[in-house]
Lab assay of single mutants.
Amino acid sequence: NRRVIAMPSVRKWAREKGVDIRLVQGTGKNGRVLKEDIDAFLAG
């Protein structure tokens, strides 16, 4: 159960899209999950 680094707005975006943010690979600094990462995860 790893800790995910993400801005609150990104966490909210993931929740709205029904995405478990822990499954998303972050591409930002220090592995931070970005809004673009959520979109890419949804795109496959």
Rank of each mutant, 00 (worst) to 15 (best):
R32T: 07
L23S: 09
D37E: 00
V19R: 02
M7P: 08
P8H: 11
A14D: 00
I5A: 06
L42Q: 07
R32F: 06
K17S: 09
V4P: 08
W13N: 05
K35G: 03
K29A: 13
R3V: 14
A43K: 14
N30V: 05
V4I: 13
D37K: 02
A43T: 11
I21P: 03
R3N: 11
A43Q: 13
D20G: 02
L23E: 10
G26S: 04
I38D: 00
R32P: 00
W13K: 07
G31M: 05
R15H: 12
N30H: 13
A14R: 00
G31F: 06
V10P: 01
W13S: 06
A40E: 10
V4A: 06
R32S: 09
V19G: 01
L23T: 08
R2D: 10
R2Q: 11
F41P: 02
K12P: 00
D37N: 05
K17P: 01
V10L: 04
G18E: 06
V19Q: 01
V24T: 02
D20P: 06
R32K: 07
L42H: 07
I38N: 01
K17T: 08
D20I: 04
I21L: 09
A14I: 01
R22P: 00
A40T: 12
D39G: 05
G26C: 03
T27Q: 04
L23V: 10
V4R: 06
F41E: 03
R22S: 10
Q25Y: 14
V24F: 02
G31T: 03
V24N: 00
E16P: 01
K12S: 08
A14S: 04
G28R: 02
A40P: 02
N1C: 15
D20R: 04
A14W: 04
P8C: 15
A14C: 07
G28E: 02
N1F: 08
T27M: 04
A40M: 11
T27F: 03
R11V: 07
R11Q: 06
D20L: 05
R2P: 10
K29G: 08
I38V: 14
D39P: 01
S9C: 15
S9K: 11
I5W: 08
W13C: 13
R32E: 15
G26D: 00
K17N: 15
I38L: 05
V19C: 05
V33F: 00
N1T: 15
K35S: 05
A14Q: 01
G18D: 07
E36N: 10
K35C: 13
L42W: 08
R15C: 15
P8E: 08
S9Y: 13
K35T: 05
V19M: 03
N1H: 14
V19N: 00
D20A: 05
V19P: 00
P8G: 09
L23A: 10
T27L: 03
V24R: 01
V4W: 05
F41Y: 15
N1L: 10
N30Q: 10
V4N: 05
M7N: 15
V33H: 01
G44A: 15
K17I: 08
K12R: 14
D20M: 04
R15T: 10
M7V: 12
E36S: 14
R22I: 06
G26H: 03
K29Y: 12
N30R: 12
R22L: 09
K12D: 08
R15P: 03
R2V: 12
R11Y: 12
K12G: 05
K29N: 09
D37I: 03
L34Q: 07
K29P: 13
V33T: 05
Q25G: 07
G44Q: 15
G18H: 08
I5F: 11
A6K: 03
P8V: 09
G28I: 01
A40C: 12
K29E: 11
K29M: 12
E16T: 11
S9H: 12
K17M: 15
A40Q: 11
N30E: 09
V19H: 00
A40G: 08
N30Y: 14
A43F: 11
L42C: 07
P8A: 14
N1W: 07
G18T: 03
N30I: 05
T27D: 01
T27W: 03
P8D: 08
S9F: 10
K12A: 11
F41A: 06
K17F: 07
G26R: 03
M7Y: 15
D37C: 02
R11H: 09
K17E: 04
G44Y: 15
G31S: 05
K29L: 12
R3Y: 08
K35F: 08
M7G: 15
E36D: 11
G18I: 03
R2T: 11
L34W: 04
E36A: 14
V33D: 00
A6N: 03
L23P: 00
F41R: 04
G26M: 00
K12Y: 07
M7K: 15
G44W: 15
N30S: 09
G44I: 14
A43S: 12
R32M: 13
G26F: 02
W13Q: 07
A43G: 10
N1E: 12
I38A: 01
A6Q: 03
V19S: 01
G31Y: 06
V33W: 00
G28H: 02
E36R: 15
G18L: 06
I5K: 10
G31I: 01
A6D: 03
Q25D: 10
A14G: 03
A40L: 12
A43P: 05
I21Q: 00
K29Q: 11
P8I: 10
P8S: 11
R11T: 05
L42T: 07
L42S: 07
L42D: 05
G31N: 08
A6M: 04
I21K: 01
V24D: 00
G44E: 14
I38W: 01
D39E: 10
W13P: 03
R22A: 09
R22V: 07
N1A: 11
V33M: 03
A43Y: 11
A6L: 04
G31A: 05
L42F: 08
A43C: 13
K12C: 14
K12E: 08
G18M: 08
V10R: 01
R2L: 12
D20E: 06
F41K: 04
G18N: 10
K12I: 08
W13E: 08
T27E: 00
V10M: 03
N1V: 14
R2I: 12
F41L: 07
L34Y: 07
L23W: 10
